[in-house]
Write a protein that binds this DNA or RNA. Structure first.
Length: 262
DNA sequence: CTGTATGTTGGCGG
DNA sequence: GCCGCCAACATACA
């Protein structure tokens, strides 16, 4: 699930559930999601602190406390949710944060592909995020174009490479390329001035809608609404969609709207 | 059993 | 060094 729009939604959960609240109890149910920190050290670092305004960079969520920062990454199946302390704990609830105001923030994740990190200070945060390119929602047109021009590989690979641009995942990349009319194998540094501009514009529009929805919505008018159909058709022109493997992921595109070459 | 899944990393060969 | 591809990580589901 989690790409930039989902993580932005989790940031909102953190704001409404936990911002300003004291962390009374950190309950690590599965230490397998902790990276570079023990359950005990996590508890000692966070209990008694208060969550302040959280930030997001790409697919990373930064839960600030005024002291150490908790960094969360959701992999493919992670979520953040707000519960009551008495609510039944589910099998995949890995860490529970008991808060003031009778709230409980939960990191739930089925597959444990990523997890939680703790940074003592800003330099610790910077170390953890040092491979991240500019955030896809915050990046300006010029930096976006410069990042792509520096890449000789396929455009889809560049868009989903977090060190080039942070936040886009497999669904968003396919969606944006479809809207921009670009074949996913187009060379990133081979885009015309116009194509680069369109790509940036469509990335912004797609991200804005998706952030509002809290996910890449599987709407009928979106490519994402059809990628899992047995015989998927392009919602714009009715052509049979193509499927293949690119950048290590299942890739869907419309051969008519996104012609190869040129 | 096989293949797939919205993520990331590290290794291999070109 | 850059690039594409693949396995690995852990788990569920068709």
């Amino acid at each position: 699930m989690p790409e930039l729009p989902d993580v932005e939604g989790f940031r909102q959960v953190l704001v409404s559930c936990a911002q300003g609240k004291v962390i009374r109890r950190v309950d690590v149910r599965d230490a397998g999601v902790l990276h570079g920190v023990s359950a005990r050290r996590l508890r000692e670092a966070l209990e008694g602190r208060r969550f302040t305004e959280p930030e997001r960079h790409g697919k990373w969520l930064l839960a600030r406390t005024g002291g150490p920062t908790l960094l969360l990454h959701f992999g493919m199946t992670g979520r953040l949710l707000c519960a009551r302390p008495g609510d039944a704990v589910e099998a995949h609830d890995r860490v529970l944060f008991g808060l003031g105001g009778d709230r409980q923030l939960r990191y739930r994740d089925q597959r444990k592909l990523q997890g939680l990190w703790l940074a003592d200070d800003d330099s610790g945060v910077a170390r953890l995020l040092d491979r991240q390119g500019p955030d896809a929602l915050a990046v300006g047109r010029e930096d976006f174009e410069a990042a792509l021009s520096a890449r000789r590989g396929h455009i889809k690979t560049a868009l989903t490479d977090q060190s080039v641009l942070a936040g886009l995942g497999n669904l968003l990349a396919d969606e944006i390329l479809w809207r921009a009319g670009l074949h996913p194998r187009t060379r990133a540094d081979g885009l015309s001035e116009t194509e680069r501009r369109h790509l940036y514009t469509h990335m912004r529009r797609t991200l804005r809608s998706a952030v509002t929805a809290g996910c890449v919505p599987p709407r009928d008018a979106w490519l994402t609404g059809h990628r899992d159909d047995p015989d998927p058709m392009c919602p714009r022109c009715g052509t049979h969609l193509r499927r293949s493997r690119l950048a290590g992921r299942g890739t869907v595109w419309c051969p008519r709207c996104q012609p190869e070459g040129t």
